[in-house]
Design a protein around this nucleic acid. Structure first.
Lengths: 337, 337
DNA sequence: TCCTACTGTGTGCACGTTCACACATCCGTA
DNA sequence: TACGGATGTGTGAACGTGCACACAGTAGGA
């Protein structure tokens, strides 16, 4: 095994400056130090190339100044959902301001789950932000057992009591944009519903149904597994087959909407002329599409920074309200409907 | 400040099981232990809910079993370059197999740079994988000064001596695909060159120039800052303005190519009929476009896992060849040229 | 009987840090 | 002169872990 080159410690500084460890510590952390001693120590620090050992500091202080960002299901997230990037950046910015380090952990397999659990337990982080947890993810139990200060992005229902979360109101957002689509004169409106094994998927469908009321027709709902482009293609084909007279589509995500647009183009339908299409997320997809998507803006960056705040406040001993917070989701009306 | 609930230590286990700390340690790490003692200790571990303190272990062992994944320029990377996600997943998978934890650190601002430098120095990680370093990024100096086992994805020229890297041959890949575009009968071929402050950007331009030889015309190179969609739109407009007779375009990335396609569509040019377009990356953009892009496949996942291997091998004391390794980049010929 | 090898257990120390405490000096004031 | 406070410094202990070492008991062979 390669032994890393010997690193300088406070002892080395003390020896070089001709003082004791305590005085060095006082220079580093504040306290009464004479100007001569301070100067000598500062010179010695540069001379020996000292960098503090965080592992030792963490051990003593029981604080690592680091917060984990746990990304579950990274495959679909990183590759199809640009939101995750914005959430990360938002969280990083907020933690950065509080002088905390964000370390993000990727959980892909069961093996990862176990290792991440060890990592979270091991005192390397003071808290955790968890994104995209499914209802029975084992990581949730680990965090709960450890009583690790944490926050969820999204809404894991069975834990709303013990761990705070931040999210959006999927039901109401879906209801609002569907209603607006209907108000624009569309008569036969379908939905490409996705991820019905998650709250977000179920809630968006519920909102759609609520908006249409008696006009709701379950035959006009195509049920696809994921929020991605390919699912959009599949879903749109299904809908067109079932109802050629369709003149409106609510897609459960922008990526799905993009796939739907492609199928509509192939089928020779004009958008928004023949068919109005609306999406969900206001991700980078929305402005890449032709025409640009009318969609629900999801405040990804704010979700990340809010979750970070929730963790930081717990670290300061504040009792945060459990039950969580829903951020507003303005509708962005562009050209696709 | 909230004091985390008191955690059980080896001492607590020892007390509960009626043995000494040493015996507990032997159960955890291997050694001669009687079956009764082992049973008692295992029961005690469950009883007190012991989780080992990694900070203490790291301090003692000088090994954290964690490797940093440092993402520089995350804005553009996360939001426009899907490659970064694949690189991360590849690295994570390789580290996971070796039972190492990947922690990814996001550097957005100067403030972040300093904090990440502290983190890397602090003994929390045994090594680092650095993605998308610019030539004079301060992080490079930190790693170099620390003599931290590291690997770069991409090619920072001034450090090729001391730190291994893995990348692709941008010059040759660009040359090859440009040559193929030319061979398909195009006479006036332009390029949308991007990120000329990075090696990758410069190299792709060099490859383009080499392929065209005497047919190269610097007026047909549009120089845009980033690898993103917006830059593609801007670059294509510029090219069309300068040379309306253009019949071929090499875009420095797929996102740029996507932007270019959009402008060509607006301008009423058919692709690949009037203009042949080729991209670079073979990212998710490539198959989303209409028509789908002919492009250079970048083995993102393999880059990540190879970089991880480079770090792991250094951790095992192996002397890895500096200078680095270039992975193959097959050309994927689809419909856009 | 003694020596050696093997199994099993306990103790002390070190990793590098911070903090509480003890001590020392100087000054102003009772 | 004596005292208290402010300023400055050194020492010892502790955070939780793993390992080297010492030691105890048993069994087998010379």
């Amino acid at each position: 095994m390669s032994r890393p080159r010997k690193r300088a410690t406070v002892h080395d500084i003390a020896a070089a400056a001709g003082v004791s460890r305590g005085t060095v510590s006082r220079v580093l952390n504040g306290g009464y130090v004479s100007t001569e001693a301070r100067a000598a120590i500062e010179a010695a620090i540069l001379e020996v190339g000292y960098v503090p050992n965080n592992a030792a500091r963490t051990l003593k202080m029981r604080r690592s100044q680091a917060v984990a960002f746990v990304a579950l299901e990274p495959h679909s997230l990183f590759l199809d959902d640009p939101n995750i990037g914005s959430i990360m950046l938002g969280a990083n910015a907020a933690l950065s301001l509080a002088d905390h380090q964000m370390v993000s952990l990727v959980v892909e397999s069961a093996r990862d789950t176990e290792r991440v659990a060890r990592y979270l337990s091991g005192g390397f982080v003071d808290g955790a932000i968890v994104v995209s947890a499914r209802t029975r993810d084992p990581i949730i139990k680990v965090i709960s057992d450890l009583a690790l200060p944490a926050a969820f992005v999204g809404h894991p229902p069975e834990l709303s009591e013990s761990i705070p979360f931040v999210g959006i109101d999927n039901v109401d957002s879906a209801r609002t944009i569907t209603a607006r689509l209907a108000a624009s004169g569309r008569r036969r409106i379908g939905m490409i519903a996705a991820a019905l094994d998650r709250d977000s998927g179920i809630d968006r469908l519920t909102g759609f149904r609520t908006a249409l009321g008696t006009a709701y027709d379950s035959a006009l709902v195509a049920d696809v597994p994921h929020y991605d482009y390919g699912s959009g293609v599949k879903g749109m084909r299904l809908l067109l087959e079932r109802e050629p007279e369709l003149d409106g589509v609510f897609a459960a995500s922008d990526a799905i909407a993009a796939g739907a647009l492609e199928v509509l183009r192939e089928a020779g339908r004009s958008v928004p002329g023949d068919v109005g299409v609306v999406g969900f997320d206001d991700s980078t997809w929305a402005v890449r599409c032709q025409p640009q998507l009318s969609t629900v803006h999801q405040p990804a960056k704010e979700l990340g920074s809010f979750a970070a705040q929730l963790v930081l406040r717990q670290l300061q001993g504040e009792q945060v309200q459990t039950g969580g917070q829903l951020l507003p989701t303005p509708i962005v009306w562009r050209d696709s409907a």
